[in-house]
């Protein structure tokens, strides 16, 4: 009996054993010592603060060391959703920013990459010029664009004088609540399009000339070559650019601080900045962390399904 039972157990190992065997087979155990330092740092500097932030969103706290933290349940969430006069403006501005980011800087980056992937006089110079804004500090970019938009000494005023078009000088780029967000977004496009271009250029290096040549020999026109050869090859790069763009646009902060501080009348406010201002400006740490938690959920809702879908597409192809 014993002799026959043993082979049966080997033939049908338990799920735990199967999982353990898979872990060993994939080399996870061997990799663990190498992963451990990074995992520890990730746990301490990313996961820990994230969990603490979520915890604080259920408390009322002024943020001062020693000040009591009072548990208030979901009251902070009720306040931001129903009473906070700025939250929904910040929320919709954040969404507008994300949607615009998915089209304008991403599309521009792709177009620039395609243009500068061809043999072209001064190609490297153009690549550098387009990329330079990406390495500048966002707050420096904010200062520069704020001066350009200055109603008294800015570009608008200069153009108005040059072209004898006074209406140009009267545009309140950062003072008009209907225009201010888009004026800041223009600076964001200027800052990030070059970075997207570099990423797409890297992806384009994976498209071999032989594939393109073969497609052309089969009679494909330029659009068909792009649609059926270049674009599929760029899919992994596009995922990276898309995810980075979404994350960068959701957490946009420095440019708005530097250009309007969220004004006029909080009309350019976004969730990341409003979370900061509630915590550090108004000393409402519970409210600030509730907004940060909402921001986290929004990010996960947008990014995770897209990454899962893309991973499945990759696997299927």
């Amino acid at each position: 009996m014993t002799a026959t039972a043993a082979p049966a157990r080997r033939a049908h190992p338990s799920p735990v054993r199967k999982r353990a065997a898979r872990v060993t087979r994939t080399g996870f155990v061997a990799a663990l010592p190498f992963l451990a330092p990074a995992l520890a740092a990730y746990a301490v500097f990313v996961v820990g603060p994230m969990v603490e932030s979520i915890r604080l969103s259920f408390f009322e706290w002024s943020g001062f060391q020693g000040a009591p933290q009072e548990f208030v349940g979901i009251r902070n969430y009720v306040r931001i959703f129903t009473q906070d006069p700025v939250f929904w403006t910040a929320f919709s501005n954040t969404l507008v920013w994300v949607v615009l980011s998915l089209f304008i800087p991403l599309g521009l980056g792709l177009v620039m990459a395609l243009a500068l992937n061809r043999p072209l006089f001064g190609r490297n110079a153009f690549r550098s010029i387009f990329y330079i804004p990406g390495v500048l500090a966002p707050i420096a970019i904010a200062n520069m664009w704020r001066w350009m938009y200055n109603p008294n000494y800015g570009v608008g005023q200069t153009l108005a004088d040059l072209l004898n078009a006074p209406w140009l000088g009267e545009i309140q780029w950062l003072g008009d609540k209907n225009l201010a967000l888009y004026s800041i977004f223009a600076a964001f496009v200027w800052q990030i399009a070059g970075t997207n271009m570099v990423l797409f250029l890297a992806g384009l290096q994976g498209v071999t000339p032989e594939h393109i040549e073969a497609a052309k020999l089969d009679g494909a026109n330029a659009w068909q070559v792009f649609r059926n050869v270049t674009w599929p090859a760029l899919r992994p790069t596009t995922v990276v650019v898309l995810v980075l763009t979404i994350i960068n646009s959701i957490k946009v902060f420095d440019l708005i601080v530097g250009m309007t501080g969220g004004g006029p009348a909080q009309q350019t406010q976004v969730l990341a900045l409003w979370s900061f201002q509630q915590s550090f400006g108004n000393h409402e740490y519970g409210m600030g962390n509730a907004i940060a938690t909402v921001l986290l959920v929004v990010t996960l809702v947008i990014v995770v399904p897209y990454m899962v879908w893309t991973a499945r597409q990759e696997k299927n192809s």
Binding site: V86, K177, P264, A265, N282, H283, E284
Partner: peptide, 20 residues
Amino acid sequence: SLAETTEYWRIQNLVATGDL
């Protein structure tokens, strides 16, 4: 208070820009 001041400024600016 700090929160009231933030709101006072928001309303001030809304009136200043003709939006309230």
